[in-house]
Design a protein around this nucleic acid. Structure first.
Lengths: 340, 340
DNA sequence: TATTAGCACTCATATTTACTGAGTGCTAAT
DNA sequence: ATTAGCACTCAGTAAATATGAGTGCTAATA
């Protein structure tokens, strides 16, 4: 168990290191107003903290830096749980609402805002369209054999794909088929669309041979639509300002990783479903993010569960501020009404 | 005017430098099989080439490197104009066609392919949707007051936007308005859509007050749609492998610049309209690309003018290979039929 | 007259060496 | 239990030196 003084020292080391990115020495600490002990005393405590694995030294004659365990302790015990500053939340909400009605734009804005507030990189994952329900499916003819399949969801999300048919489309056949599909499939979650279309087609198979053929083609194209969840990156440039990313060796893996949209999406979707979660250094299990910490949170928009937002910074990130800002943003989003 | 030998030397210097990224010295050159002169002779010619501004030395005791003027001379006089390798073009075409029917996917594929072939970064700009003509406009209701405005162009491009109306939408009013707009506006280039809608609305103003109000709202949302041309980046990682981008000072401006989608689009659209154009170093006028050269070309797909594709590498890029590959790709695209 | 050999000179880069100073750990005094 | 004192460690910096690739010029050569 840590003594009162050791706690103070640990906190001071981490706070200091977060600010300066430099190892913190005993003399520096003893000069602080809130630590009125001699450097020797502090050194003794530091040795204890090191034995406990909470801090470590880069080399013999350097000061101490927090270890991952140290950060973990700091986050779990020394960072106040989120305090919503009503006025600030309101102001953030205003800035968000000023931008747009459209949920996707709103999410982007939120990511940018969070990144501006913290100077870290943010990633926001929009609603997984697999959960969206079909509002309408349509086929707009472009010419005799080409058309655009449109899939609009109840959330206003639109997927589209150009299809080319083997033979010219008969207008009334198209209309008939589309009406049929709309009648049967309205409200189907996109994730089940492929399966449900299959069912409907099967029913139809014997009855209307011609329509069947046509629909088969339609389906084949439609089901290939990948329904990617919308992903948005905010403040990617911020990484350039972090002292720990001033060398190519550290910068490159990060940039390469963050540019891989698909992997990023999978990662965000795989995160545990919680309000605010802090993952420190190697905890996140991603090699490219070894030296990063991530603050993630699911968020709701207009009351409905929506997506995930993440904030990525160096392990030496300002957890206190980060957690706070994350809290404000998701609270502001929660209170945002889409229609007004 | 350059002597035969000076030409040979200039070419050798550039070829060598392109490969090694190291200043080329007279002794290195005199060892080459195609240069059977003594290093002293070569030194004399090098001095002349330097007087002419074609090469320069980084410092007194280093070899020579090509100047921008040197590269320009090299590209204009020493690189063969594109030779289409029929078999290779065919193979590239196959690889492209294998991927998809959809033009946007095809363009992405082309950018990736070009980047794979050259190990440089590529940017592909899809068709400017402002040129696309309206195939159909539609409003799909989501609930009483929200709907999705869909704009489909003759090229299969889709724009969409969620709109929220002040008052509930009357189904027949919606239908009537949409039919009206479709009747009047079909075939209108997207760039003129805003203006044309204005015209139609003016006509309607006095006749149908209610419909007018509704349409005004519809318009307001629609015209805000930004019709961004589709932009695709290929092989961004490649930059990490270029020796001239191993320091943050050079890397950072490049990465920051290339991540700015909007600026990138404007830039590509502002390029002179030609088949294949090489812009060397500062010629392109972009600070972040001071040390880069760019090979750009407009391309056609299925015979129709389509967009622009660019290849960005260090000034010391392999122009010969780059120009060649660019030629192959746009030729392959030109021969690609969208429907088959 | 064009080419080449020879040589002094330049200058980036690498290596060595010495120095500085922030920081530690331990011991003995308070 | 705390603190003063001191020997020791070691990254970082700076100066000193060496290395070698490359140049420009001059004089000899074909």
């Amino acid at each position: 168990m840590l003594t009162e003084r050791q706690l103070l020292i640990l906190r001071a080391i981490i706070d200091d290191y977060i600010q300066t990115a430099q190892p913190v020495g005993s003399r520096t600490l003893s000069k602080r107003d809130d630590l009125s002990f001699s450097s020797a005393t502090i050194r003794n405590d530091m040795a204890d903290l090191e034995d406990m694995g909470l801090i470590e030294k880069p080399h013999t004659s350097a000061g101490r830096i927090p270890s991952e365990i140290g950060y973990r302790y700091y986050v779990d015990h020394l960072v106040e749980t989120k305090i919503i500053d009503e006025r600030e939340t309101y102001r953030l909400g205003e800035r968000l609402r000023a931008s747009a009605q459209e949920s996707e734009v709103l999410i982007r804005q939120a990511a940018d805002l969070l990144s501006d507030l913290t100077n870290y990189t943010t990633v926001a994952l929009g609603p997984n369209s697999q959960m969206n329900r079909l509002a309408r499916i349509d086929l707009m003819p472009l010419d005799e054999r080409r058309g655009v399949v449109l899939i609009v969801t109840d959330q206003g999300h639109v997927e589209h794909r150009t299809v080319v048919f083997d033979s010219p489309m008969a207008p009334d056949l198209v209309e008939q088929t589309i009406r049929f599909l709309n009648d049967r499939l309205k409200g189907t979650p996109l994730g089940q669309l492929k399966f449900r279309i299959g069912e409907e087609v099967a029913k139809l198979r014997l009855a209307h041979q011609e329509q069947f053929e046509f629909m088969m083609q339609l389906i084949q194209s439609t089901i290939e639509v990948q329904h990617p969840a919308s992903l948005y990156l905010g403040g990617k440039k911020n990484i350039f300002n972090q002292p720990e990313f001033q060398t190519l060796d550290t910068l490159r893996p990060f940039l390469e990783w963050i540019d891989e949209q698909e992997r990023l999406t999978d990662w965000l979707e795989s995160l545990p479903n919680r309000e605010i979660y802090v993952s420190i250094g190697s905890e996140n299990g991603i090699v490219a993010l070894q030296n990063c910490s991530v603050i993630t949170s699911d968020y709701t928009l207009d009351g409905k569960t929506f997506g995930t937002i993440a904030m990525i910074g160096p392990t030496r990130m300002d957890y206190r501020h980060g957690v706070q800002m994350m809290g404000q943003i998701i609270e502001a989003l929660r209170r945002t009404k889409l229609e007004e």
